[in-house]
Simulated scan of single mutants.
Amino acid sequence: MERRTFIAGAAFAAALPIAAKADPVDDARALAERFASTLTAHDMDAFAALFGDDYSNHQVSAAAPPPPATVSPKQGSVGFFKARLAGMPDLKVTIEAVVASADKVAASFVYEGTHSGTYLGVPPTGRKLRFTSCDIFRIKDGKLVEHWGMGDIAGQLAQLKG
């Protein structure tokens, strides 16, 4: 009887680490959700903490030019979103769709807010803005370390100009 109890106990104990392991795909999805929720909460410290120090941004656009050599890509991206929050202090970010693997996550983000501060060089208009971006992130050690994306800059400018 003791032998059966020992074997059953050993089998249960061996299964515990497997059951307790996190699913990397769920972790990737959660990282995209935290990207949206930290921006919605305007918690820039938590937002910055999502990015690895070795973060690389492959997106280059008129709205998000590469930062100067004295500013890291991580600092440049955080600064870009700080400016977005200054332009739309009531910004809310949601996710329309998300696809994830163990080391990548892609999401379609929706940004909604009132243009109450200068944004993209345009003084406040009081207009409600709604625009999207599609972003792909590579993940390493639970951090966003690489980014490719496309944002609807033309749509943003059209809304800003009325």
Rank of each mutant, 00 (worst) to 15 (best):
R130Y: 00
V60A: 13
D90A: 00
A62M: 15
K128M: 12
G76F: 02
I139K: 13
A62W: 13
A86H: 07
V93S: 02
V110S: 03
L31G: 13
S61V: 09
P67C: 12
V71H: 05
V99A: 11
I7A: 13
I136L: 14
Q156F: 05
K74W: 05
A46S: 03
G117R: 00
Y55A: 08
Y119N: 08
G79P: 05
E2V: 14
F137S: 03
A83T: 07
D26Y: 07
V93Q: 02
K143H: 13
Q75G: 00
Q75Y: 01
T125V: 04
A46K: 01
T38N: 11
D45Q: 13
A86C: 03
C134E: 09
F137N: 03
Y119S: 10
L120T: 05
R138S: 14
G117Q: 02
G126K: 10
A11D: 09
A83L: 07
L120K: 06
Q59A: 15
A13W: 07
S61K: 08
A19T: 01
M1W: 04
A69M: 08
F80P: 09
Y55F: 15
G113A: 11
T40D: 01
H58I: 02
F6E: 12
P17H: 08
F81M: 12
E96N: 13
A86E: 13
S37H: 03
L31R: 11
T114R: 00
G87E: 10
M1I: 06
P124C: 03
R3F: 05
F81V: 10
R127W: 03
L50I: 10
P124H: 01
P124M: 01
H42I: 02
G121T: 10
V25S: 04
A32Q: 04
V110D: 02
L39W: 08
I18N: 11
A22D: 15
P66Q: 15
R3P: 01
E2Q: 14
L120G: 03
A15D: 01
D43S: 00
G149K: 04
F131G: 05
M1T: 10
F35Q: 07
P66N: 15
N57A: 06
K128D: 15
K74V: 07
D43Y: 00
S101H: 11
G76S: 04
P73R: 03
G76N: 03
K143I: 09
D141R: 09
D26P: 05
F80R: 09
L120C: 06
V99D: 08
S101T: 15
A11M: 14
R3K: 07
K143W: 07
S133A: 11
G113L: 12
V145S: 08
G87Q: 11
M44E: 05
S101Q: 14
A14L: 09
F137Q: 02
L85F: 07
D152G: 10
R84E: 13
C134I: 13
A15G: 06
G162L: 05
P65V: 06
D23A: 12
H58A: 02
A64C: 15
A83H: 07
A100W: 01
F80Y: 14
I153D: 14
F80Q: 10
V110Q: 03
M44F: 08
G76I: 03
L16S: 06
R127V: 08
L129C: 10
T5Q: 14
K92E: 08
I7K: 12
R130G: 02
T5S: 14
S61P: 09
R84I: 12
V71K: 05
V78L: 01
A97Q: 14
M150Q: 12
K104M: 03
A13Q: 08
H115I: 02
D54N: 14
